[in-house]
Nucleic acid binder design. Structure first.
Lengths: 338, 338
DNA sequence: ATCGATTGGGTAATCGATTACCCGAGTTTC
DNA sequence: GAAACTCGGGTAATCGATTACCCAATCGAT
């Protein structure tokens, strides 16, 4: 397999230079030659070899994307949005999952760099362990972080304003009458996990409500179920639970209801992300929506501006989230009802 | 950016040939040279250019995968399984979503072929419209279809035995006492959609139960909700609904219960896939599990054997599915209870 | 001592597309 | 009519890694 431009040139009776020019249109050729080349290419089914082109041009027309896992609907939503964004720019996406492991992540970055991607979009899985690999990559190609980021600067970032999002959620349940609140989130291994907890704590403290000790596990449904069980076992239910993402919230609602607790009458629950799980929940979940399309658009735009190893200070673009009130909380506060 | 092997050779004071040999170990060099080259490479941070290697070797070490959409958890599960399977073979996965459009699918195949992937794994989105692009691709590189396939042969396939799966589901609800059944599935645009419907009809007919007209829409939660609404509106509920996938089933359960129907007491519901949605449902969904890991392993194995444009007859490997009884059906029949 | 084999290093061809550079023919201009 | 340009075509260099091929040195055997 492999019709080359030499074959086309020979079939058309011209030099490879003319064939190349006729096909790319980057320099004039006589209509006669253009015609002969076009016909020869069509007959032979010529398809330019992107590998050779990449080597010669020193650009591959691909960008790499690394996310912790594509099982998590939040990340698949972002990936889809980025893909849509790239759609018509002639750039292809090379997608990798790090499986929440900094080692795998580093390996994936290595191979993407070896394949000479023109840029990278990454959501680093661990706020500390991901640092060396990400900074090293940022030194070599344009790189933008999305959603999660690493500490220490040096690489641009686009994401939601996590603290503001949690503030929205906390203020909402307080406006609904909650006097005691608890946070159900993930262990503090990612920036999102940390910022959401701190946003929660800050807002709750400012409002002066009672704050129970946070429940920290993973960003999964299973952990949500477990967290709900622990609340039930503790014998002391708060008026509201604010969760670090929708999967936790859905699991938690299920487990509370299973324990005979009414949601939202006894306990209000609010999630975070709003990427599909929320409407699947019963009752539909009140949550904070991440502006995924905007984040993707912004990330791609930013990537176009970034240069590898750029010494200018890293940019952080935090997009404002939006509260979506459904039925796991009382519809008191301002917000979009659906 | 770009330390080449020439730079390494110069720094080590040897020829590029020696440098290459020292680094690859494919021919002996003196320990002295090996040492100098290794040191130079490390100091310069040399990383071989995969593009150049691919051009020279005529193999890229990548395989392309095209699925209808990564929003559907069934496909992400397959993708993850294939990725795991490829993990240690040094092959990378180039993932594309066709967005359920044969045009997009054809374009994605074109660019994957232009990038000279070593093989393709595809789940063609449309049983008719996908034919030309898929067959053309199969003529040029090894290609294996997974889950969905196109009519007319010419390309290998690995998937679940859809008809057998539906037979399991139908027999299960009948054993549970159902005397009237209905199928909620998708329009017949894919092989899976067709085989699941025919498996349903054949088994129901053989058992002699009453069969209501099938509800055909899309493989989505929304369609499940709508299908449930139509059943409620029809004024005539069947004893059991067998669904073409779990998303439809989850939506349907929700909408039935919303209409005051008890599941499984009034109507039993069974899904298909078992990729996570099932346990999220309330009550947990009885379903037919697709052996995703096995399918992925088999697809990768098969891909290693297939040659491009191989004239031998296409293979079809149908793996047996398994019934998983949870709580949307009566636990009567044999099957795995969880 | 000589021949053949073995070992290990270097030179340059190769993969395929693009394009810098050169060249000849035809045009324009004074 | 000759110098200066323009136009369009061809030759070969280029991207970076690998390796076919060649060659010198060394060793063992006769």
């Amino acid at each position: 397999m492999g019709v080359t431009i030499h074959d086309v040139a020979r079939a058309a009776g011209v030099s490879v230079a003319s064939a190349s020019r006729a096909l790319s249109g980057r320099r004039k050729v006589t209509p006669e030659i253009a015609e002969r080349v076009a016909r020869a290419a069509a007959e032979l089914g010529y398809q330019p070899n992107a590998v050779a082109k990449a080597l010669r041009d020193q650009t591959t027309g691909t960008i790499g994307m690394v996310v912790p896992g594509i099982g998590n609907p939040f990340f698949t939503t972002i990936v889809e949005a980025v893909e849509r964004e790239l759609q018509n720019s002639g750039t292809d996406l090379l997608l990798c999952a790090s499986q929440y492991s900094p080692q795998v992540e580093a390996r994936r970055l290595e191979t993407l760099l070896a394949r000479r991607v023109d840029g990278l979009i990454i959501s680093p899985c661990d706020i500390e362990a991901s640092v060396p690999a990400v900074l090293d990559a940022a030194r070599r190609v344009p790189l933008v972080q999305v959603d999660r980021y690493i500490e220490g600067g040096g690489a641009d970032w686009v994401g939601v304003d996590d603290e503001a999002g949690l503030a929205l959620a906390v203020e909402h349940v307080i406006a609904g009458g909650a006097r005691s609140v608890v946070f159900a989130g993930s262990r503090l291994e990612s920036s999102s996990a940390r910022l959401r907890l701190s946003g929660f704590e800050r807002t709750a403290a400012r409002a002066g409500v009672e704050v129970l000790p946070p429940l920290l596990g993973e960003f999964t449904l299973e952990w949500g179920v477990e967290a709900g069980r622990r609340l039930l076992d503790s014998g002391r239910l708060p008026d509201a639970v604010v969760c670090a993402n929708d999967e936790i919230a859905v699991g938690l609602v299920r487990s509370l209801r299973f324990g005979g607790v009414r949601v939202p009458e006894d306990v209000a629950v609010v999630g975070f992300d709003d990427v599909g799980h929320a409407t699947m929940c019963d009752p539909p979940l009140s949550t904070v929506r991440q502006p995924v399309e905007e984040m993707a658009a912004e990330a791609v735009r930013l990537l176009g501006q970034v240069k590898a190893g750029d010494p200018r200070p890293a940019q952080r673009i935090a997009i404002a989230p939006r509260l979506v009130v459904r039925q796991t909380s009382r519809p008191v506060a301002a917000g979009v009802a659906e």
